[in-house]
Computed example of a mutant assay.
Amino acid sequence: MPWTSADVPDQSGRVALVTGANSGLGLATATVLAQRGATVVLACRNPVRAREAADRIGGRTELLELDLASLASVRAAAEELHRRHDRLDLLVNNAGVMVPPHRRTADGFELQLGTNHLGHFALTGLLLDLLRDVPGSRVVVLSSLAHRIARHGINFADLQYERRYNRVEAYAQSKLANLMFMYALQRRLAGSDARTIALGAHPGYSATELTRYLPKPLQAANRMMLGPVSQPPERGALCPLRAATDPRAMGGHYYGPDGPFEIRGWPVLKAAAAAAHDEAVQERLWTVSEQLTGVAYA
Rank of each mutant, 00 (worst) to 15 (best):
1 M>G: 13
6 A>I: 00
11 Q>R: 09
12 S>N: 12
12 S>C: 12
13 G>I: 09
14 R>E: 13
15 V>F: 12
15 V>R: 13
24 G>N: 09
32 V>S: 08
32 V>R: 03
33 L>S: 11
36 R>L: 07
37 G>R: 07
40 V>E: 11
40 V>Q: 05
46 N>Y: 01
46 N>F: 04
46 N>W: 01
48 V>K: 11
53 A>H: 05
53 A>E: 07
53 A>I: 02
57 I>N: 05
64 L>N: 04
67 D>A: 13
73 S>H: 13
74 V>T: 14
77 A>I: 09
77 A>C: 10
79 E>V: 09
84 R>I: 04
84 R>K: 14
87 R>G: 10
88 L>K: 11
94 N>R: 12
104 R>C: 03
111 L>F: 07
113 L>Q: 09
116 N>S: 03
118 L>T: 10
119 G>V: 11
120 H>G: 05
121 F>G: 05
124 T>A: 14
126 L>W: 10
129 D>N: 04
131 L>A: 03
132 R>V: 06
132 R>S: 09
144 S>K: 01
154 I>V: 14
155 N>G: 00
156 F>G: 05
157 A>G: 12
160 Q>A: 04
162 E>A: 14
168 V>W: 13
171 Y>P: 03
177 A>D: 04
179 L>V: 13
180 M>P: 04
183 Y>P: 04
186 Q>S: 03
187 R>G: 03
187 R>F: 01
188 R>H: 09
188 R>N: 06
189 L>R: 11
193 D>R: 15
193 D>L: 06
194 A>R: 12
195 R>V: 00
203 P>K: 06
204 G>Y: 03
207 A>C: 04
208 T>R: 08
209 E>R: 12
212 R>F: 05
213 Y>H: 15
213 Y>N: 15
214 L>W: 12
214 L>P: 05
216 K>L: 15
216 K>N: 04
220 A>W: 15
225 M>G: 10
228 P>Y: 08
229 V>T: 09
232 P>Q: 13
233 P>F: 06
237 A>W: 05
240 P>I: 02
242 R>T: 10
244 A>F: 09
248 R>F: 00
250 M>P: 00
255 Y>I: 07
255 Y>S: 08
261 F>A: 15
264 R>P: 01
266 W>V: 00
266 W>N: 12
267 P>M: 04
269 L>R: 15
276 A>D: 05
278 D>C: 01
281 V>S: 09
285 L>G: 07
287 T>W: 00
297 Y>K: 10
297 Y>R: 05
